[in-house]
Design a protein around this nucleic acid. Sequence first.
DNA 1: AAATGCACCATATGATCATATAATGAAAAA
DNA 2: TTTTTCATTATATGATCATATGGTGCATTT
Lengths: 294, 294
Amino acid sequence: MARNSLSPQISTSIIEFVRANGMRKGEHLPLQMLADTFRVSRAPVMSALRKLEERGIVRAEPNRGYFLGMDSDKIEVAKEDGGEHPEGDEAAYFRIAEDRLSGALSERVSESELMRIYELPRTKLLKVLHRIAEEGWIERLPGNGWSFTRTLTSRQSYEEGYVFRAVIEQQAMLLPTFELNKEGFLKARETQTALRDGGYEHWSRAEIFKANNDFHETLVACAGNEFFLDSIKRINRLRRLVEYHVTIDRSRLPRQTTEHLHILDLLEAGRRTEAAAFLYTHIMGAGRIKAPQV
Amino acid sequence: MARNSLSPQISTSIIEFVRANGMRKGEHLPLQMLADTFRVSRAPVMSALRKLEERGIVRAEPNRGYFLGMDSDKIEVAKEDGGEHPEGDEAAYFRIAEDRLSGALSERVSESELMRIYELPRTKLLKVLHRIAEEGWIERLPGNGWSFTRTLTSRQSYEEGYVFRAVIEQQAMLLPTFELNKEGFLKARETQTALRDGGYEHWSRAEIFKANNDFHETLVACAGNEFFLDSIKRINRLRRLVEYHVTIDRSRLPRQTTEHLHILDLLEAGRRTEAAAFLYTHIMGAGRIKAPQV
DNA sequence: AAATGCACCATATGATCATATAATGAAAAA
DNA sequence: TTTTTCATTATATGATCATATGGTGCATTT
């Protein structure tokens, strides 16, 4: 009846915050500062702190506020929230995509039908539907109901997506505003190396996909142009949906990661043009070999 | 309390339909065919036809259906609906953009505030807000309210947009799937010629902007890749908002249209690479000279 | 001076309901 | 057989309301 409380998220954020700052036992946690950091008012921060007190992570002193109860590196991550809770609406969004790709949802659907199937309140459903509409794989019909487009399910769209990514990423790399992001590269290098040296055998499909996306988004972010980055993020959201329905060919991962690392090498050696050309071939190659099972 | 009826729109659609098909007095208008054409059920078509009958455009024969009451080229366009009614939500979307750009709306706003200001029901407002959020110039705050981003108002975003357009359009033209669209080119040529030969002095700002956008979207559509076209449409929607606040330098229009026509010439002569290079310079030139008054 | 803690107000969500409209099956007419 | 016409059902919208939560001014404490 009322919205979900922010305090669980804020609790998590506070823990991340004190960790990231390496804070130690006894340090003060000013309310307003935390509120500003998380872009909320003091109220939800207060209620988050109260819950953290119950868990012994912070101590309250009357009229003086809250203080860290232990060194930040000793804080245990809460075991709760474990149930794969992908951010509320995200869950519904995903279920709709799954059901569409598997054919459980027909091309034309009505809002009330979806409300019943997914047991969503109208507001949440509409939020999700409008988001999907902006992503381009559903559209509102003039009268009642919605109609899925062929964007998700057609082979042609799939290939067009790869062409688009190849062009955008290559061109992003060639922009005069492109600048290496040392920290980002370091992380990307770690992840890709881990994936190459064994990770490809046991990482989950979601982890592998995320590693791949993060790599490409890190590259495009270096171009310093929000429109390039946005368009890549947008198409990657679509890709995620489709690729989940494709059998991962894990044997290709070592080669893929090696190529990723090669791109980093080239960039760090200042050979941008070569890196861009190689990246282009890399993406087009991936698009040609994997095929959606639709 | 209930949604707006479709019948006014359908009435207009029917008139457009019979015009486009050059239908003549007495021809039959089957209900189901019209319904399928407009992707609705027979019900709203029926009610549209009843209204057209009152205006004498169609004749009803009991149990036989509706028949065109006059030759299609003699149908007068209805004078009603005159009040600049840009498709319902579009109006609210525009007003919000205007007020943001003119500074009437502060960076942080709450939903109820917007409902009051624009006298919108919650559902409509949320639809618009989510659309804007997808376009990237507002974001939901974790607690209450929304916050405008700097995408619309910053000079940097403005320039990044031009770079993005220049790259996308040039690259679209170089794709192997690029194919001339003769009919589209013909129309574009007409419009651009009209604009060059005098139109630039008295066309409205909206007309000029639309002509320009249509030209560029026609070009990108030839690439046969929905992602290229979508990204151009998306950025053009943003551009439209900002450019309305810029004084048009009409003296530049003859040169601009001449360049547009030159691009068509090059393409029709099969000189695609040159056309692409010229297009790139053309867009970047436009971005450098016009400046948003923000 | 700075931060907390409280009280009060504002906000957003979801449920329910009335109502106008869209969708649709089936009878009736052509 | 096709299309209209009618009757019935389904759908979507906006209004209203209860309620839990977020936001904020101010007295109080340190």
